[in-house]
Amino acid sequence: MVVAQSVSADPSDQTPFGTPMPHDRDSCPVCGMFPARYPDWIATVLYRDGHADHFDGAKDMFKYLLDMEKYASGRKQQDILRIGVTDYYATARIDARTALYVAGSDVLGPMGHDLIPHLDRFDADEFMKDHKGQRLLTFQEVTMELLLALDRGEIPSQ
């Protein structure tokens, strides 16, 4: 069961990036987990009508975005206002579209192997060195093939 979330008028419920925080009962539309239990991994898709879907990591957010027919029936990409992910080092919400993602590291998220978001190239490069990252990707480079490989603990080279 997916619990709908709408944007609160209370500024304390918003992140600096402008996406709402999930409430305790909001569940990830991809896996059913409760993102509020994993604050360092939260990703959010915010629609123009105020509806928000929350995820327990970037990997599930990308699965949702790449298969909206399955996970967001009736919703459209052009209705999305903001997409936020939690930056690994700052643990602050950043723009998912401009973030860089590291795949194949020794850091596991709530759903296992995940894409680890970073604000900039410097942080992403440092993370790759420190955590044995295998691949650096932009938002546009993430594919369903890659996400399914992560689920299997694999990292496709290209």
Rank of each mutant, 00 (worst) to 15 (best):
V3I: 13
S6E: 13
V7P: 06
S8Q: 06
S8E: 10
A9Q: 15
S12N: 13
Q14V: 02
P16D: 05
T19E: 01
D24C: 11
R25W: 14
R25A: 12
S27T: 13
C28H: 03
C31G: 00
F34C: 08
R37L: 07
R37V: 04
R37Q: 11
D40R: 13
D40H: 09
I42H: 11
V45K: 03
L46T: 03
L46N: 03
R48Q: 15
R48V: 03
A52N: 00
A52P: 03
D53R: 15
F55K: 01
D56N: 06
G57V: 00
K59I: 01
K59S: 02
M61V: 08
F62G: 13
K63M: 14
L65R: 04
L66S: 08
D67L: 08
D67T: 08
M68L: 14
Y71V: 02
A72F: 00
G74V: 00
K76V: 00
K76H: 13
Q77I: 12
Q77C: 04
Q78T: 08
D79N: 12
I80Y: 04
R82N: 01
R82H: 09
I83R: 04
I83T: 06
G84S: 13
Y89Q: 11
A90Q: 13
A90C: 02
T91W: 07
A92P: 04
A92C: 12
I94R: 01
R97D: 02
L100V: 06
L100E: 05
Y101G: 03
V102P: 02
V102H: 12
S105Y: 03
D106S: 14
L108P: 07
L108V: 12
L108N: 15
M111I: 02
M111Y: 09
G112L: 05
H113W: 10
D114Y: 10
D114V: 07
L115A: 11
P117T: 08
P117H: 05
H118N: 12
R121D: 12
F122Q: 14
A124M: 06
A124L: 07
F127T: 05
D130I: 11
H131N: 12
H131P: 12
K132G: 13
Q134N: 04
Q134I: 03
R135F: 00
L136H: 01
L137W: 09
T138W: 11
Q140E: 07
E141G: 04
V142R: 01
V142M: 14
L146I: 03
L146P: 10
L147E: 00
L147F: 00
L148H: 06
A149W: 10
A149R: 04
L150R: 14
L150I: 07
L150K: 15
D151M: 11
G153H: 10
E154Q: 14
I155S: 05
I155N: 11
S157F: 12
S157C: 04
